[in-house]
Amino acid sequence: MNSRFLETFIALARTPHLRRVAERMHATPGALSMRIRSLEQELGVALFTAEQKSLALTDAGRRLQPYAQAVLKAVEELRQAAQPRDAVTGRVRVGMMETVVHTLLPDFVKAMGEQLPGVELDLSVDLTVNLIENLMRGELDLILCVGQEPRSPYVLAENLLNLSIHWIARKDLVDAQDALRQVFRHQIMTQMSNTAPYNAAVSVIQKLAADQGVPATRLRISSSPSLAALVALAREGLGVAVVPGLLVKEQLDRGELVQLPLPTPQPLTIAQWHALNASPATLCTAEIVQQVCAAYCARHAPGGWIALADTGIRSGPGSGP
């Protein structure tokens, strides 16, 4: 069975538009149609029906789709196992959220250069919602994002690290002994609105305020897409930041910032996602990410700033045969 035929089947199941998939696979729509017809003849079933300008999976196509995914995954693992790591070549498009830039990125780039010198990295930084969308569109190969359950059977997701979240302020801004009462006098700054870290922080802030009898109308909560900006504002005494403590460890050690003894939101989980039928270069890159995370955690775990996450690999509904 030709693996390219299976790849075409899976690609069209994900994006049921011949022309769009043909452009992504550097082929013609006619060539893709021939691959699907050949696969249908070999399997003895119809996989798609035509609906106006798009395709739709038949019942048989939906039933066979997870089996095709499993075969492709096995083929890629076989190819990967057959190559020494230093012989792996290609280009891997890696998207990451900003937290990764300030933590894992330098170690990751160094490890890639040492262990996968034949792989070219194409790096980008974005919000998790955009990273996931770009991965699903095939515009990224691997993403490092906020951990959550994948909704697609075409994606493998693995939680890597948990970063503890802390209330951070300039040392003379809030009296730590009276932090619970004083903190609501100031602007409270957290990560980008409508993200999981933001929602978790706001939930804790609102509960604390309610417990202290502070009306919601008196709360001043602001958000920023830039963690670096939040830290800079906190250093200037322009508010209290609710951020991963590891990002300001040096400023805390120097006494420029202090950690306030207040209840904290749930940890921020960093996860990596890639397609089920990822290339050997992408799979090797994912292994290096795992190694980098383990080493980074070993260095920074003292103090409770960071911990390895539950590393169970998951995919979305309908991923198994």
Rank of each mutant, 00 (worst) to 15 (best):
K207Q: 13
S193N: 07
P29I: 04
A241T: 00
L161N: 03
R4H: 11
A179L: 07
S319L: 02
A68H: 00
V183M: 01
R181W: 10
I205S: 04
G61L: 07
A68I: 13
V174I: 15
N159H: 11
G44N: 01
I165H: 02
V75D: 07
G138H: 02
G312L: 08
N134H: 14
R185K: 09
C145E: 12
L262V: 13
A82T: 10
A216P: 07
N2K: 14
C145N: 12
T58S: 07
V240M: 03
E139L: 14
H274F: 13
E114A: 14
S224T: 05
G61P: 01
M34G: 04
E120V: 14
R37T: 13
G138M: 03
A87M: 10
L104S: 10
C297N: 06
Q177A: 15
V174M: 09
C293L: 05
I205K: 05
S152L: 05
P16F: 14
H300T: 05
P215K: 05
A46Q: 13
S193H: 07
V204A: 03
V248S: 06
L173S: 10
P244F: 02
E23T: 10
D59F: 02
L238N: 04
L32M: 12
D107T: 08
S152E: 02
Q191I: 00
D141M: 02
G44S: 03
I188S: 00
L283P: 01
V92C: 12
P225W: 05
I10E: 06
G318H: 00
D126H: 14
G239W: 02
R62M: 09
P225L: 01
K73Y: 13
L142N: 04
P244I: 02
A201F: 00
D141T: 02
A31C: 09
I221D: 00
H26D: 10
C284W: 13
V289E: 01
L55N: 12
I168M: 08
A176V: 15
R254L: 05
I205G: 04
Q212M: 14
T28C: 06
R170Y: 00
T264C: 00
I306R: 00
E77F: 15
Q69Y: 01
E76L: 04
L121Y: 03
M192E: 09
P197L: 03
A200E: 00
A201L: 02
G239E: 04
D59M: 05
V248P: 04
L160A: 05
E236R: 14
Y296Q: 06
S3Y: 15
A201N: 02
M34E: 03
A50E: 08
V214R: 02
D59C: 01
G245N: 07
L116G: 11
A87Y: 06
H17A: 13
V92N: 04
Y154S: 03
E7S: 14
N162R: 11
E256D: 14
V155H: 07
I36C: 11
M112L: 15
A201S: 15
M97E: 09
M96L: 15
